[in-house]
């Protein structure tokens, strides 16, 4: 990509954000600060959160809870999907249950967790896993079932161990779907973690948002929200990097569909 093309691409990405920031700044001139604080105040607060350890620790706690919950949901979901993929009766039995769990709102899980568990971290982990589990399981199961029968037979013809089969075929073949599942579930998890912290925690971005609401501090509320957005952007960027590296084998057509 030429520098000019890169600049154009960056400008295209940045333009909508510039428009929103500009509109916010105009609103801040017309409205009281508790409704639309100046852009500089919001960014100042956001930067202060990142630069001071006690507030940064709150952000990192939320990040750790989100990633911990996602990892937990992914591992359990992948194991469940593998079992369901191999045992059709199990898939028949578990699928309606997962669909039922998927239908339960995140807020209900927060209430259940507060009633059922004492520790904050246990509550949040439970909520994160239960809200992420159905999606991860269904996505992994779909990826497992989409494995090419031709490739499975080819690898089997060399009589591999189960672990070899997993390493040389199943994991690489499922990787694109795994990465997509992470991208989708990351957004959901960042929303659920805030909900869980709002009600069931005494630390983290969700808890801090609750404090800002009680103080009617809009600049603080936006600044804490930006931390979560920043986290999602960073992780999405990391996943995109992994995709570019791990999926570089995929052919790219000059004319896109």
């Amino acid at each position: 990509m030429t520098p000019a093309a890169w600049l154009l691409r960056m400008a295209t990405v940045a333009l909508p954000f510039v428009v929103v920031v500009f509109a916010w700044q105009i609103a801040s001139w017309l409205l009281p600060p508790y409704i639309a604080p100046p852009v500089a105040a919001v960014f100042g607060r956001a930067l202060a959160i990142l630069l001071h350890w006690p507030t940064l620790a709150e952000v990192l706690a939320t990040v750790a809870r989100t990633l911990g919950g996602l990892v937990g949901a992914f591992l359990i979901g992948a194991a469940l999907a593998a079992a369901m993929g191999r045992m059709t009766p199990l898939a028949r039995a578990v699928t309606p249950l997962l669909t039922f769990i998927q239908g339960i709102p995140g807020l209900s899980w927060v209430v259940f967790a507060v009633i059922w568990f004492k520790g904050t971290e246990t509550r949040i982990f439970f909520i994160m896993v239960l809200t992420g589990l159905p999606a991860f399981t269904f996505q992994m199961l779909d990826a497992y079932r989409s494995l090419s029968r031709d490739l499975v037979e080819m690898v089997l013809s060399f009589r591999p161990h189960r672990a070899q089969m997993l390493r040389v075929l199943i994991l690489p073949a499922m990787l694109p779907e795994i990465l997509t599942a992470w991208k989708i579930n990351l957004g959901n998890a960042s929303r659920v973690v805030v909900l869980a912290e709002l009600v069931g925690a005494t630390s983290g971005v969700g808890y801090e948002l609750m404090q800002q609401q009680q103080l009617f501090d809009m600049a603080g509320a936006v600044a804490w929200t930006l931390q979560l957005v920043l986290f999602v952007l960073v992780v999405q960027g990391l996943i995109a990097l992994i995709e570019r590296r791990a999926l570089r084998y995929r052919a790219v057509s000059e004319r896109q569909a």
Partner: peptide
């Protein structure tokens, strides 16, 4: 035993 299949069945992520 080694098999040569009708189609190549190469793993697309391997060179």
């Amino acid at each position: 035993l080694a098999i040569v299949f009708q189609n190549d069945r190469l793993l697309p992520w391997r060179n």
